[in-house]
Design a binder for these strands. Structure first.
Lengths: 214, 214
DNA sequence: ATAAAAAGTGAATCCAAATTCATTTTATAA
DNA sequence: TTATAAAATGAATTTGGATTCACTTTTTAT
């Protein structure tokens, strides 16, 4: 009597769920959150619009799911690097920035959507939570660095926010020379990704008062 | 025969125009661009919605006008400071940041709207132009500083973008401890505006490789 | 095979503002 | 004072998706 989803059916359902997520991610990576429409996603996922609502209560719920899924991956990764044992704060920061930057550059459009695309309030609230999380872990790192005198004494939460902003704007935002066509400014200025990353690493380390060892 | 607006009428019209602008600015300063609706503004300006369209071709045109008017004031001010004669690059940067920060803090909500509130694409495009302008003048300043060896050699456009991002995030964005209730974190951490500004000035100077003189 | 439960469908509905425009009011010039 | 131009009005229209829901199809348990 009682209807009980069989393994096969449950799997099919899960598959459909994943397809919706992945299709949405693809759309966001190609043209940003602003390009996501339910009709749009439904077509790509090969379901009816009504079906989407059997998996996600609203467009915002769908977008939030995707946003969190992919933002979380990056945050967790950076978190791990900053929790490494027997690595100095300066070294951890260097690695964290390098990893974050390289990954963002490999998925430039997605990174733009996740980090700087203007979003509506619901999603923006999520983004703020993640930025705050980044800020918190960087803040801790700075405190650590102050304690071992690798960084100068400072308001760690202010400096942490500055680092988050500096990374976003210089690597991903519209001011990043990396976001102009690779052929344009970068070639003209003979700049490559590695140089940009190295520049921003030095920028951050020195900002915190780290004295380069020779 | 030919209708020619008399001085009095022209003045009245100009007054009405200003009133629309000022009412819109007030609305933005109180609740952001997202709270602006034509009905809303019309009511506050004591005109009919249709009348707004005799002054501005669209909502976006109105918002853009206000956005540019107030953003331009700040940009011009900072530009002047950076063009000062007989002032070292480091000193100019210090002053520019201090002035920018103090003014933003005095008009916190407006600054938030102008600098970090998520906007729709039309306005966001305007904002990017201004950010680029800031980036350009900071970039020039950095080049100047490199030349006189106050700053280390670096990719000035990358560092300039980083500074723009750092200022926005640490002073105005949601991560700024100044944007939480003044009573909250700031008192709890015994932090005041001056300390935050001083922190961010040092952050930027050192980021560029400036060596504090004793 | 059949009935009940769940899943899927997509055309129709809803919605909130921006924008329009036929009409009214005000200003100008003869 | 009157005819014409400009300005102002605000109710009605438009719009672009998100969301709904009556109906169909598929799955499950007997």
């Amino acid at each position: 009597m009682a209807y009980q989803a069989t393994a096969k059916t449950a799997a099919k359902k899960a598959q459909k769920y994943e397809k919706i997520i992945s299709v949405t991610k693809k759309q966001i990576a190609q043209a940003g959150f602003s390009s996501v429409s339910m009709a749009n996603i439904a077509a790509q996922a090969e379901v009816a619009t009504g079906t989407l609502y059997r998996y996600f209560s609203s467009k915002q719920a769908l977008c939030t799911e995707v946003f969190c899924k992919y933002t979380d991956i990056e945050l967790t990764l950076v978190e791990k690097l900053l929790n490494a044992k027997n690595v100095s704060p300066a070294q951890k920061l260097t690695t964290a920035i390098e990893v974050f930057a390289k990954r963002a550059m490999q998925s430039r459009h997605l990174a733009w959507s996740l980090i700087v695309e203007p979003l509506d309030p619901g999603l923006e609230a999520q983004r703020i939570k993640y930025r705050q999380a980044y800020c918190d872990i960087y803040s801790k790192l700075i405190d650590e660095g102050i304690k071992v005198q690798q960084f100068r004494p400072q308001l760690s939460s202010v400096s942490a926010a500055a680092i988050v902003g500096a990374l976003a704007e210089s690597l991903i935002g519209p001011l990043s020379i990396l976001s102009s066509q690779p052929t344009e400014k970068m070639q003209e200025q003979k700049v490559n990704q590695a140089q940009v990353i190295s520049n921003i690493v030095t920028f951050c380390l020195q900002a915190l008062g780290y004295q380069q060892q020779h």
